[in-house]
Structures are given as C-alpha cells and as structure tokens.
Design a binder for these strands. Structure first.
Lengths: 288, 288
DNA sequence: ACTAAAACGCGTAGGCCATAAACAGTAACC
DNA sequence: GGTTACTGTTTATGGCCTACGCGTTTTAGT
C-alpha cells in the first residue's frame, strides 16, 4: 500500500526471462544476496572463510580443508561457518571460482593462436600452482563470475574469427579439457618423483616436500617404478608391443624438462584447432 | 650375532636388476605375493573385495564405497578387509586397474589413425560407463597389469610408425589426457542435465537418476543455469566479448548429441597428432 | 522510545568414516 | 606335538560433516 520504499518481494534488476529459481549457492556465488539486514553486522564473511580455506589447501592440500580447521584458522567455531556458507560443497565451489581471479589478462592483439596458447598456459600454470584444484569433486555447478570472466577472455581472443559462437565454445572447451588433463599428468609425475625421492632417502611417506632436496626431485625419474615393475613382473608374451618398442631404449631419455611436455600437448591441440579452422574457412588457407 | 634363522631381509625370486624396493601395494597389484602359506585358507579374497567395491561404485557412486559397506556386501566385518588390502587407497588403485580389464581389443591393422581413434573412444566409453573412475584421487601409483596391457595395445597401433618409443609414449599420453578431460566434461554436463530435470520436477536433490524420465534428461539443456546466471547477473561491460559473441544467438543450438562433441575433440587431437607425425617424417606427406 | 523480528555466533550431539591393537581359532610345517 | 603363520573378529580411537536449538545483538517499524 505504502508508496515509499515498498519491499517488493521480487527484486530483479532486469526482467529475467523465465525467472528460473537458482540454487542459493549460485546466488551467493554471484554476490546477489544481502537484500536487507537487521541483525548484528557479521564479524565473519564468506570471503574470509574462502580465503582461509584456500590458504589451508595451498599449505597442506585439500584433505586438510575441514570445517574445523577453517574455523580454527579464522578464529571461530566450526558451526559459525554455516551462517555464511551452506555447506562444504558450496565452499569448494567458491574456492574454485575465487582462485580463477588470479588468472592474468590475455592480450587480444597477438593473433588467435598465440592468444589461445597464452590462455591455455596460464590455466595450466594455475593448476600446477594449486594442485588441489584438480582434486575438487566433479560438480554440475555453473561457473562463477571469475571463471566466466576467463571464458570471456577466450572469446576476446577468438573475436576476429568468423565462426558461430557455439563452435567457438567447443574450441574453448577442448582447450579447457586439455588443461585439465595436462595439469593432472604433470602433477602426478611430480608426485611420483617426490615419492621416489622420499623412498630413496628412507623418509616416511608423509614427509613434506619442503624437506626434500629440490634437485633430487627434479632429477628423479617418474617412470622408475613403472620400469621396475615391467622388468620384474612383465614378460614379452603378454606385452609384446611394449617390449618391442623399448627393446632399443636401454638407458636413453633423461627426463625432458616438464615445459617441453606441456609444449608438445599444446602444439598438437592447437594444430588440431588450426586444421579445424582451415576446414571451416575461418582462416586463410596459407597454402605454400 | 645369532647364526641360526638369520632373518635375511632380501627375498628376491628372480634376480631383479637394481632390487628396488617396491611398495607392497604394487606387489599385490601384480599378483606377486603368496610365497608360502601356513594358516587357514582364506575365505575372502582381494578380487572379491574389489568386485564388491566396483559394484557399489557402479550402483551408488564412489561416495558409497566405504569399508563398512564393502564388508557388508561380502558378508564379513570391516576389519576383515584389511587382511587382503592394505587400506582404502590401495583398494582404489586395484579398482582402477580391475576396470581396465573390460577394455576391448583394438584391431591393429586399420591404420594408425583409426586405431588411435578406437583406442581413445573405448577409453572414453569406459569413463562414461563408470563415472566414479574420474573421481578417484590423483595417485602416483604405477599402473597395474590391465592398464599396461592397454598401453601395449596403443603401441601395437603405433607399431608401423618409425618413431622413437618415448615420442610414441608422448602421443599416447596426450590421448589419455584428452580422454580424461572429455569424459569429465561429458559427465559434468550429463549431471547438470539430470540436476535440472530434478529441479523442474520438484524432486529432492538426492533422487536417483533411475526415477527420472530419460527423455527429459536427454532433452535438458545443460547450459540452462549458465544462461540464466548470465542473463540475470552479468552485463555487457564486464563480459563484453561473451555478449558480443552470443548477441546473434538467441534460441539456436538444440543441444547436439554428445557423440558429436566427442568426435569434435578426437578429430582435433588426432589432426594435431597427424601434423606432428608429418613434421617428424613418420608418415608420408600426402600433399595433394 | 519501545518492541519485535531477524541475523549472528556457539554448544551439543549424532552418525558416519578409516583403521590401530589385541584376541581366538585354524592349518601347515618341523 | 609343538611351533608358527595366517585367518577373521572384537573393541576402541580420533576424525569428519552438520542438524538442531540456544542466547545475544542489532535494526526496522510503530
């Protein structure tokens, strides 16, 4: 009735199409909550919680991220967190998006190929810097603002190309997939190398990497276990092709620096994208 | 001091090269245990345990795989499992390898490209059939017999190519990475579609997919949430490229059947591999 | 100014989970 | 027959997430 400050229930800045009901988690992700407040101003905030959780994950891995540990880190009791975060699942989603804020800006004027390579490399670097990101449970949650911003940058790189947007999205998706796989493999081989160094030094499995000799880790052969297993248990009749291929490969292969591995994958995938673009006529044919 | 029954530490059946000490988990994986036995013959076996665990994961997801549930399934107490498996981590590794036994045989006479495509597709299909495989924690564990067999098949496909084995391994690794990413993306969008159908039908989040209409899931748009979020919260100033790209894309894009998505990625990656092989001179140049 | 509602942070408690340690029974070896 | 190794079990510990209900604090509305 009152004409001033009517507390209309619907609060839609733009008239959203079908007014689909979004999960509360998504609304919080996009900072769309806080319509009105009456109680005491919160001493704790979701950002603080997420920040503490990220610090914890950086320092001790995702397994160390428990509500109790986070609460301890921010100086509250575990249950206090639930006023700002609906549960652990939502917290993990928020962590994932918060980390994406660290991604750099990609220059859009260097051509599509250089741009996509930079975009991909930045994401791989992020995954290597925070290995716990790849351990996050698969979730059907829609991306948050930072991640969307990152997708937007990819569209900026692809902007000069004459290609329908869904095909651009497919290309971006392909690169994103490659990122996931590449980072995972890199991390796994690093972990294997660390583990090998630990065993050789006779240290317990839980020894933090910081106490290990970085040079030894660098020099460790991540395939050591694999080779030992093969030479001990496997025979040429069950794995004929493998044995034939490696018969002429006794002491070769000093482990190539990891940068080369990354370049190999990126080059191959981008070559594939280039072939696709040529086929679609989105780039000139460059025939010699 | 004592000369009798010296507890010799070394017990090596064959004289293995550097006598590296492998983790017990690996030895069990390769079935190299059981040197002597004196007690009662075991009623339970590791294979039984792994089988029950896989059944459980297939039916209710990896989260349902707890030692207690497995024990219940095989009819023993939880602690009985520890006589056959060192812990849950080892169990997961064994599950991962056991599943790889279901992979088909790849015909090696259809050319490298067709062979690699079949190899990749089979692995993606496996991941889609058992989504929990992708939730397995990253592990530095060396592969088991079945997985090595699978790698051997890839080497069989690549056998005619004149390429050093480490480069072949890099190619295989690239495809394996792609598999991981592709399966993960497919599963995520499927999960999003399921979740959307659940919400539209007003069912609780935990409703099993079996109670949902498969046609509705098939028809659901996995980007629905994404689009709603964008249209409601995002504006053209923060995401300029995204908005420009999709400005001309109002109601297009009936979700393409998932097979096409898979084909897009595989084609691109194999095109990249082909470009690499050509560059290396491993296949004829085929220039028109 | 007074009241009532709303939001805050906290304590308790319950139900999971993995697994360490000590125990009793069994079958092969010497 | 005694020893010994191996089996499955019982009991117990410490961790985890979170449902529920409590006092307290602040603001909106009268």
């Amino acid at each position: 009735m009152s004409t001033d400050t009517t507390p209309e229930p619907a609060e839609q800045p733009h008239d959203a199409p079908p007014a689909r009901e979004l999960p509360a988690a998504v609304q919080r992700l996009w900072g769309a909550a806080a319509p009105r407040r009456r109680g005491p101003k919160p001493a704790l905030s979701a950002a603080q919680i997420v920040g503490a959780a990220i610090d914890l994950a950086d320092a001790e891995g995702l397994a160390a991220v428990s509500m109790a540990r986070i609460a301890e880190a921010v100086g509250y009791t575990p249950m206090a967190l639930y006023r700002h975060v609906s549960g652990k699942e939502e917290l993990l989603v928020m962590m994932s998006d918060a980390v994406a804020a660290d991604l750099p800006d990609i220059p859009a004027d260097g051509g599509w190929r250089a741009g996509l390579e930079a975009w991909t490399r930045a994401q791989i670097a992020l995954g290597l810097a925070r290995p716990w990101m790849l351990e996050l449970p698969l979730s059907a949650a829609p991306p948050g603002p930072n991640r969307v911003r990152w997708i937007d940058q990819a569209f900026g790189v692809l902007r000069p190309l004459d290609l329908p947007p869904d095909e651009k999205l497919a290309i971006i998706g392909l690169l994103a997939q490659h990122v996931l796989g590449e980072a995972r493999v890199q991390i796994e081989s690093h972990r294997a190398a660390v583990q090998q160094v630990r065993r050789e030094a006779g240290l317990p499995d839980g020894t933090p990497e910081s106490e290990l000799d970085p040079a030894a880790v660098e020099a460790a052969n991540p395939y050591a276990d694999f080779e030992t297993v093969l030479s001990r248990y496997a025979d040429a009749t069950t794995y004929p092709n493998l044995f034939e291929a490696f018969a002429t490969w006794p002491e070769t292969a000093p482990p190539t620096p990891p940068d080369d591995d990354i370049a190999f994958g990126i080059t191959a995938v981008l070559d594939g994208v280039e072939a696709y673009l040529r086929r679609r006529g989105a780039i000139p044919d460059e025939g010699s």
